[in-house]
Structure formats: structure tokens, C-alpha cells
Design a protein around this nucleic acid. Structure first.
Lengths: 389, 389
DNA sequence: TTGATTATGTTACGTAGCCTAACAAACAAA
DNA sequence: TTTGTTTGTTAGGCTACGTAACATAATCAA
């Protein structure tokens, strides 16, 4: 993740630690009653009173109702107030720009989707232009009740390095070629596969897991790794760049070039192999992977063989990842990754070659990436409001 | 890391947070003056007074002298007191048992080395017996001034899982087959390669690094990964078990069995390949890797070719690791790993296939592993004294 | 309806753990 | 010896919590 726009303002918030804890709780849980907050945070009722008063002075909390228990007085229910503001999250994908405007506790305020005129393999000018236009369009709709814009998050189809790393080796700055963020609004950048991993953590099958890996298999192949609840980014923003795994590698084979696996496991080369191996009497070969998967599902022999071999290749990649980080859970995503046809083969291969690991298919749809960057942008905004410490 | 022996005593220490901070500082720095501690921890002199008094009541600090600045009153120098106690650290290696008795701030009190009668490939009875005897022998020498025994750390040549994992799949419990630790003394277990990685962090070339990987190349091959300053252990204690990387893996090759890389990159298979490829006119082939490296260093052509090929294989493995965790630094250790002959080839291969990564040879000797487990045991003891949180 | 019971929120007040200010002690340099 | 500097202690205040007690608001049983 890279953050631009707020350089060096290490703003201590001025809130007491209990007020910060209350804010964080409402941030993560969405809403809670005072007794619930007391219980969860181990605070006394007087401390809760003063914390709430403290946050209320800034409009940072909002009473949204009362809850009646079995007996006794009603408990007041709170959530974050409107002065907390909102964030804009953008998935700058290869075919679509998906945008969400939401509160810090991720209540959706507005959303839009823009279809790019052509599929963009890499981050370039067209994406930058589209992002600029979409953000501008939604800013026009901003309502007073949304409060201030606290952050803009953008998921990019490129490596992203943080301030320690060397941004010149990535494409990340391309996003700003036609897009200039509003002054004073921090921009949070993160790789789109990493964002999808985050979404699995907050919305998907990896909920509650401290450690897991997300493997996206589609046009390209990539991985996002979450360890101790935090995204692993790497010195060059290259953690999870599994297309750079040594390939081919064997007693008589060493890789000649970097990223050979990217080509081999990409859909282009996969379909080329399918066409080459397609029997003359097996009908017309499939034109894309979706078609290939349909044929395989319907029991087509040649299609099945191709899918199985691809699944076993992916299983080998997963085994390699497990051997290195042993995450306990691997989530498969992407057009091919989510196919139920590949899951058993990946499981079999990975668990035979490596250590016991749960392997699941993602159930999140096309919104996964934008939900992931939304989470990251919200967390960044929350940290800014509560001070770095 | 696995910890046995102290089940469930979540002892809050009763010390103020500043006293704990002072303790931690003396723990990590060894010694410091009061003004230094104030400066480093951001505490006032009155607070330092009360913190010191607090710790002194338990004999947890000790004044060891005074330091005279340019002008003004002398500053008192402190270190951890004898009531803090000591730890026993054991490297249960394949050929030697190395033992150190030391204070929590790692002042050496006693050490001994025992040579096993034969090289043990795996953790078994003989190691357990030897560990029991060595620990018993050094306990006999315990002096009153050493204070209580706070922890026993043992580095094992096996996978080690923590309490979440399934210990039945590892060999770790074998260590207790002939060794029964004293009651009430926690035992800290960790894999020996992970320990060597820790030692690189605290004593070696990885000092000051938040993230790095340590690759040990010798009889077997293994890796220890430190991320955000903490050892990565994995759900099955298998993080860094790079012998399970998919191998062979290529367009026409999938691994048939687990851990094929362990055999291929092990010294046994290496020497077999060397012998097979040895030209008839090149003299007698080397009998072990040390000899092979000597011949290569002296310019022997066939030896050089073998070493280079092995180095490139290792470089491919390093590239795979970098592609997944992108640590920024890889330290090479072990009998073959530390050879200056392989370093350039590993560097070339890894950096060509993957992302910019510093690659260094370890400069620590045979004590690395025991120093690593010493660090872990000391940290565990420190946490117990200061309370969990 | 009315009191008993219970949960919630506020007020009053105590305390721990830090701080600053001021002073005492211990040193070097003038 | 005096002066200035640094170290350590004493005195006293402040903040962020806590507990105790009370006020408030609900259910429930008579």
C-alpha cells in the first residue's frame, strides 16, 4: 500500500485512549450500544459517558436508537457520526472501473461502474482518465450529510511500493497521469490482487482468519498474503508475485527468464495448449476459458483433461506457497480459480506435496477488489483521525 | 515456537508501564544509565526514580557503576539484577549438543558442547538422552548468584508447531522421551533453522532489518523467515520448509512426491551427481562437499561446474522465496550456503528471476543456532516476568 | 395502579501514574 | 572557592481512569 497526500503530519488526536477505543469499535462493528462497548472494551460506565461526550463534541458519534433488553432501562445504540466523513474507493480494473462512496464504517452512499472501451492489460493513460472522470462525477453528487472526504483508495493492476521502496520500478504513478486528487485528501494505492485478499478477510471465506493466502487465477496469476491479520507487501511491493516463481525448475531445467510462469499459467498460453492438443474429432475447440470450463463441466473429455492439468499446475503453485508461508488457508479466486472443477485437483495436489491446508473457492463476486481497497482506505482514514501513535 | 510448562497463568505483572519499559530496555540493551533510559523512553526523572525503586524492590535491577559526563554529576549505570534469573539454551543439533546458560540480557554464565557419537539425521532418542544429560550437568553447576531458572530453550531439527497446531504430525515431542524438564520451568521449542534466522537478526548481518529470509544450505535445505521483526512460523510450523517447493515443475513436469527438492538439493544427491559427471581424467572425485568446495576454490574445472550449477539451483529457490515474500534481504547460511563461491551465482540467478533483493552470506559460526534459541527463550522469560499483554 | 426488580446513565469522589517545578547533591572548570 | 551543569529527589498538580451511590427508565408481579 502506498499513501500520498498527507506528508508528515503526525497528528496526535487529542482523544483519550478510551475514546479512541470506542471510535475504533464503532468503526469496525458499525454500531453498538453503550453497555456492549463497555463490555467489549472493559470500560466503566462513567468512562463511557465521558468518551461519548468527547466524541460527540466533534460530531464523531451519533445515537441511532435504543434497544430494550428483557428488563430494565433501554440501552442507547450509537454509530459513527456524519462529521467522521466518507471515502471514495476505486477498483481500476482491466475492463471496468468500479467506484464506491461510503462512510468509514462502510455504509454505501453511492456507487457507479464504468466499462472501459477495451481490456487494459496494464495500467495506462486510459485507466487514469476514466478514474479521474468517475471520481469527479461522484464528487459532484456529494451531499452535505456525507461529511468531509477523508481518503481516496485506488486498487491498481500494478505492483505498488510504499514510501520505503523504489516507485520508479512500478507503474503505480501512471494513475496520476490524468488524475489529480483533491488537495489534502490522502490517496491510498494498493495492488488489486492484494485488495481482493483483503476483501476475503473482511467479507469472504477468510473471515476471522489471522493468516491466509488468496490466489487469483485468471488472465494472469497473482497472490495476496495476509499474515497476523495484516497484508504482506514486501520490500518491492512484490510479495505474492507468484508469476516470478522459478519455472521451469528441475534436475535438467533452470528458468531462462523472469516471470515464465506468468506466461505459462496465463489464459493465453493455456488456450494455445488446449488448441494444440485438441483432438480432430472433438468438435470445435473452445475460444475462451469460460467456454473451456463449460465444456469440461458437461463432461467433454479433452476439455476435462486440459482443466485438470491446469488445476494440477495451480496446485503445484499453491504447494510452493504453502511450503514457504504455511498459511493454513488458501482461497482461490479469479475466473478460473473459482471454478468448482479445479478445486478438488488443486486440493489434492497441494496437500499431497505440502502441509495440511484448507483450500476454498472465493464466493465474492466482481466487487471483491473495490471492497478490499475500501477497507484499506477506511482504515487509513480512521488512523488519521485517531492519530498515528 | 512451542512453549510447554506454564499453562494458563496469565500473570499481570503489577509493575507500572514505565517500570516495564525500563525492564525491557535493560533487557534488550544490557545496560544503561538513568538519563539514557529517560531519553530513550521519554520518561521524566521522577518517574525513572519510582520505576527504579519499583524494580529494585524485587532485585530486578542492579547498579553496576557510574558514568562521568563532560561536566556535572555522575550518572548511575544499571543492568538487570540477579533476581531476574537465568535461562538454559540448547541447540540439539545433528552432530553436537551446544548449551549455554545465560542471564536474560544474554550474559554468558556457562557453556558446554557435547559431540554425538554419530550424525543424527532426525530428532530421536539419542538426542533426547544427550540433552537431558547436558542440562542436568549444567544445573549441577548452578550458582546462587544466577537467580532462578526462568526458561529452557531447545532448538530442534524438526518442525515445531505451537499450541494451535497439531503436534502429532511433528517429531517435536521426541525431545521429551528421555528428558523431563524441571517442574514450573517453561520449555521453549523452535526449529533450528528458524533459530539460526533469529541469530542473524540479533547478532548477524540482518541486524536492524524488519524483514528478511535466512536460507540454510547444507545436508538439508531450509529457510527461516522474519517479517515485521517476528519469526514466521506457519499453521503447521512449516513456514520456510522450502524442501517442499514443487519440484520438478515445468511444462512437461509435475512433482510426483512431496519434498523432492529436499533430496535433490541435499548433499547426498549433490555428491552423487558430482561423481557421475566427474571426468575420468580429473583426478579422484571429492568425497564430501567441503572437499568439493576446496577443489572449486582452487580452480578445478569439474568442481567449479558442479558448484556453479548447485548455486544456480539455490538461486532459483531464493527467487521463488523472493517472489512470494519479497523480504528485501536473504542471508545464506550452512556449510554450502556460506561459501563465497556460490554467492555471486545465487545473486545473479535470484535477481534476474525476481525482484531486487540484497543477498548476503552469514558470518555467524556454529553458535548461531544456540544464540537464536537463547534469544527466543530470553524473550519468553521476559514476557512472563512482565506479564502477558 | 403500584411497588419490586433490574438495567442504564450520571454525579461525586478516590487513586494511579504520569508530569512540571523546585530543590539538593555531585561533579568540572574557572 | 565560586560558578555552571548534570543528576536525582521532593512536592504538588493533572489526567484518565476507577468505584460508590444515585437518578432514570424499563419490565413484571401483585
Amino acid at each position: 500500500m502506498k499513501v500520498a497526500g498527507t506528508s508528515g503530519q503526525i497528528s496526535r488526536s487529542g482523544f483519550t485512549s478510551s475514546a479512541r477505543a470506542v471510535f475504533r469499535m464503532l468503526f469496525s462493528e458499525g454500531q453498538a450500544t453503550r453497555p456492549q462497548l463497555c463490555e467489549a472494551l472493559g470500560l466503566s460506565r462513567p468512562t463511557m459517558s465521558s468518551s461519548m461526550a468527547e466524541l460527540d463534541r466533534f460530531g464523531y458519534v451519533e445515537k441511532i436508537g435504543e434497544i430494550q433488553g428483557a428488563v430494565g432501562r433501554k440501552a442507547a445504540m450509537y454509530r459513527l457520526g456524519e462529521k467522521v466523513g466518507h471515502i471514495i474507493s476505486v477498483d481500476a480494473g482491466s475492463t471496468h472501473i468500479r467506484l464506491r462512496v461510503s462512510t468509514l464504517d462502510r455504509r454505501l452512499l453511492h456507487h457507479r461502474t464504468y466499462r472501459l472501451s477495451s481490456s487494459q492489460r496494464y495500467l495506462g493513460d486510459e485507466i487514469s482518465v476514466a478514474v479521474a472522470e468517475e471520481i469527479e462525477a461522484s464528487r459532484q453528487l456529494t451531499e452535505a450529510a456525507w461529511g468531509p472526504l477523508r481518503a481516496i483508495g485506488i486498487a491498481l493492476p500494478s505492483r505498488v511500493v510504499n514510501d520505503d521502496g523504489d516507485a520508479r520500478t512500478t507503474r503505480q504513478e501512471q494513475i496520476f497521469s490524468h488524475f489529480t486528487p483533491p488537495a489534502d485528501v490522502p490517496v491510498v494505492l494498493e495492488n488489486n490482487v492484494n485488495c481482493a485478499a483483503i476483501a476475503e478477510h473482511s467479507h469472504g471465506v477468510a473471515q476471522g482468519r489471522q493468516d491466509f493466502a488468496y490466489v487469483q487465477v485468471g488472465l494472469k496469476i497473482g497472490m495476496g498474503i495476509v499474515l497476523r491479520g495484516q497484508l504482506l507487501q514486501g520490500r518491492n511491493g512484490a510479495a505474492g508475485e507468484i508469476s516470478h516463481i522459478a519455472f521451469p525448475f528441475g534436475p535438467n531445467a533452470l528458468p531462462a527468464n523472469a516471470a515464465e510462469l506468468e506466461y505459462y499459467l496465463g489464459t493465453e498460453a493455456l488456450m494455445a495448449r488446449v488448441h494444440q492438443a485438441w483432438p480432430a474429432n472433438a468438435g470445435t475447440p473452445p475460444q475462451d476459458t469460460a467456454h473451456l470450463l463449460t465444456l469440461a463441466r458437461d463432461g467433454h473429455e479433452a476439455a476435462n483433461a486440459a482443466v485438470e492439468r491446469h488445476a494440477r499446475d495451480i496446485g503445484a503453485v499453491v504447494a510452493t506457497c504453502v511450503s514457504i508461508v504455511d498459511p493454513g488457508l488458501v482461497v482461490l479466486g479469479g475466473g478460473i480459480g473459482t471454478s468448482p472443477l479445479i478445486l478438488p485437483h488443486v486440493r489434492d495436489m497441494a496437500n499431497r506435496l505440502s502441509y495440511p491446508t484448507e483450500i476454498q473457492s472465493s464466493t465474492l463476486g466482481a466487487d471483491a477488489t473495490v471492497l478490499g481497497i475500501e477497507k484499506l482506505a477506511a482504515e487509513h482514514a480512521c488512523n488519521l483521525i485517531l492519530g498515528a501513535e
